[in-house]
Design a protein around this nucleic acid. Sequence first.
DNA 1: TGAAACAATGGTCACGTGTCCATTTTTCAA
DNA 2: TTGAAAAATGGACACGTGACCATTGTTTCA
Lengths: 354, 354
Amino acid sequence: MHKTCLVKACYAYNGLVSTTILDVAKHAGVSPTTAKRAIRHPEKLKAETLVKVQQSIDELGYEPDQLASALRSGRNTTIGLVIGNIVEPFFAELTREIGVEVRKRGYTLLIADNEYDTTLESNHLKQFHGNRVAGIILRAGYGTGNLEYLKTLKDRGTAVMEIDYFSPDSPFSHVMLDNTGAVKRGVEYLNSLGHTKIASLGTYDEALWPDERCAAFPEAMAEVGLELPFEYQRSISPKAEDAYDLTKYLMTLDNPPTALFAQTGHVATGALRALHEMKINIPEDVSLLSFDNYPWTELVTPAISVIGQPVKDMAMAAVETIMGDIEQIKAKKHPPVVRQRFDAELIERDSCAA
Amino acid sequence: MHKTCLVKACYAYNGLVSTTILDVAKHAGVSPTTAKRAIRHPEKLKAETLVKVQQSIDELGYEPDQLASALRSGRNTTIGLVIGNIVEPFFAELTREIGVEVRKRGYTLLIADNEYDTTLESNHLKQFHGNRVAGIILRAGYGTGNLEYLKTLKDRGTAVMEIDYFSPDSPFSHVMLDNTGAVKRGVEYLNSLGHTKIASLGTYDEALWPDERCAAFPEAMAEVGLELPFEYQRSISPKAEDAYDLTKYLMTLDNPPTALFAQTGHVATGALRALHEMKINIPEDVSLLSFDNYPWTELVTPAISVIGQPVKDMAMAAVETIMGDIEQIKAKKHPPVVRQRFDAELIERDSCAA
DNA sequence: TGAAACAATGGTCACGTGTCCATTTTTCAA
DNA sequence: TTGAAAAATGGACACGTGACCATTGTTTCA
């Protein structure tokens, strides 16, 4: 890797300078309390004084120190978001919408991704707590989890909620897709096209990766009266490479499935790559249905039929919930546990046929 | 949109409780100063005392308040990242790698996206400054910019650097792709396949969207001795919809291009959608070369030839630079202005033909 | 004209930490 | 045993703000 690098002399640096409200007060010739009121309670000031202080604020470029404010008031205006992996478009969209909503309310957003790993997650949560965030929105990793720690945080006044997934025995609010309904919808759709041999690309190992969609799949199959061969039930982690391997395995079985149901859009990319390599045609040789309405699903040939999530609605609901909790906590009340479920949308395109 | 919602009674909430170092000290029977040393300078403590304090820390679940620490020491351990749009995979990857590097150093990451809009950006920068971030990594929006404000921040001791793009007259360090070289490489490649009628999908309006790649394109064409018809030089904003429109416009010209060169991966999705709709075959009817080695470029048929960016290397360089700056500032020194350029990589796939 | 009522402004302290300096305890050689 | 040096520990204060109470200036109405 070639890399050029040039170093220039830099301009004058005056050392760490920070304008405080005292500077503003001195400059405007009023007391610090009055100066502060120009920001927090401008209605309590005489118009003349207000203008004077505002001029000083502009002139000195004063901006309140959120750290000092948070320390003194005990209330921070930062939300911590822990997600699986920002590179996955579902999380990227979620982050984006949550960011917009959070900033709309004057809060800032701290992020970290946990790779679905509770060990990494643990450190991130500690960092967030160290920064005394007002709330944490968490897409928890699989595994034993940080439930006890999160409970401690909640007891200490941090608003905690989960999104997209919730830990077993979680006592927190959450915002979720109606995964069971969505999986049923998908299976019914594939069955209505005449498919009987349907395989799910997802995690079957309930201990390691307890996933609602994967748990719902066998049930959904049973409900429409379809059998689920044992050899289809191979567990993978929710990674593209694993899905690639699983697809190759499934399609070389003596009794290969006629339809594949990818439980995440990320997993679908692995499946698609495998099918391409094996020169298996979609939808002629096998149908493919995937979760997540990702941009690329429309671009490939054939366009992939998907089960889309109302990401924006979910993000908005999450932010509203956590902001409500924060208000409750401010008022020394018990925030209620709110569980919200959102319906998925089946988008029929060209990757599923009879 | 159907939405179910159930509210449960919640468990006991004890009000805002926060364990401080004083609690630890009292519990361990030492002075606050000694207790603190157990964390910051454990080597200065008698082994026996250290153990005693550490036990108290564990027992009480003490975690230092970063806010108070930052306020007192004047040093924060938060980095603010402003990017174009987290939904674009380039920024998602960049965010991810920057996040990993930043956290590796015990810092936390604050993010915001500016939609390439300097007005939005301005608010985010103010929020970051309000939170007294140690440094800001910025993918600046196009337009007159927040240069003056950023200079003020730098003067006040915030490390500021740019990534992927830099404002005209920017006095800051930056980490950039060698855009000119990459564009030349792309044009040469297309020309070597026999193309003479090449159109760029990007921004031509230098005042509104001053983009290196777009500026380099006419030069690159001239260098290989190719003409650039006036009707090809239509300016768009870097959005998928605009690229969609531009592609339709270009392909219905009397003298349509035989090769399209998308200046970002995001823009390429718009072009691809337009070409699909128009039933124009790649690469038989038109060749398509795009910036950014996005996952989907491999999944579509034909797989798209791309100019990939070394995102991880760039992220690491950025974090190293800004951390170096922060160290310099701590030491009351002038951080040097460092401009780094990285080479792109041409990945030949199936979307370009003679 | 006076006093009450209200508007406007000011003063003090604490949030939890890091820094500096002061004090106590231990160590070690003569 | 003694003294000084070194190791270990403690105390006081300030970072910039928000909350609360105290004070001063102004209006109102009989």
